[in-house]
């Protein structure tokens, strides 16, 4: 098994998760790296991804595990020769078993950039010091649904026209795009989100995946 950290930037954030899996599948084929396949009628390459990113969210901290006997070094170098611009392997490491990233992830850091200069949001008093933060969204059937997501908000800060947030990722998932929109709605701000980039992934206790799995 080899675990992989990669980034998905430079407009590749518009490529859906399924197609990203296809990108890796094909990159492995092109690079000649051998991957183990599942048994059965419809064998597929054994990749174990983390919670999928929403479409449009870029990331500098994505992880997956692949069942292969190739060296970590080879996986990194050869894959990088075979990936489209914007998708890049940052780190690889050989491990004994699948660490199950999907089950272990708990939080993520995001940087949200806006198209205009933002007003000052009093994030501390309006959100962090409160027990409740209501997120309203329209579900697939067109109904408005409101939910308290305060437990999935860990950190929030503003730096001029950027927001930095640490949100639940995985089981108690809170989407950064939905969160940003809600903050804008609540403050009646008309600016728009330009780019959301996920910059770190943590486990449920807030330990950085890099530290937990790659050191």
């Amino acid at each position: 098994m080899v675990i992989v950290k990669f980034e998905k930037v430079n407009m590749r954030e518009f490529i859906p998760h399924l197609d990203i899996m296809r990108v890796f599948n094909m990159a492995f084929r092109r690079s000649g790296l051998k991957v183990n396949y599942s048994e059965g009628f419809n064998p597929h390459a054994l990749f174990f991804f983390c919670q999928p990113l929403p479409l449009g969210v870029a990331s500098r901290a994505e992880y997956f595990c692949v069942s292969t006997s190739e060296t970590a070094e080879d996986v990194k170098n050869k894959l990088n020769e075979n990936l489209p611009k914007g998708i890049k392997i940052l780190k690889t490491k050989t491990v004994d078993g699948d660490p199950n990233f999907a089950a272990n992830c708990g939080r993520a850091d995001y940087v949200v950039e806006f198209d205009e200069v933002l007003p000052y949001f009093d994030l501390k008093n309006t959100i962090l010091k409160k027990d409740e933060f209501l997120l309203t969204r329209i579900d697939k059937t067109g109904q408005r649904k409101t939910k308290n997501v305060r437990n999935s908000i860990f950190k929030l800060s503003q730096n001029e026209n950027k927001l930095k947030m640490q949100l639940g990722y995985g089981n108690e998932n809170l989407r950064a795009d939905a969160m940003s929109k809600q903050i804008l709605t609540n403050s009646a701000t008309h600016s728009m989100v330009k780019l959301i980039t996920k910059i770190k992934t943590y486990d449920k206790n807030g330990v950085d995946f890099d530290k937990k799995y790659f050191s």
Partner: peptide
Amino acid sequence: LTVDKPARYIGGEF
């Protein structure tokens, strides 16, 4: 993101 399948319009194909 407001359009269906934005990956159609971004280029950068391998």
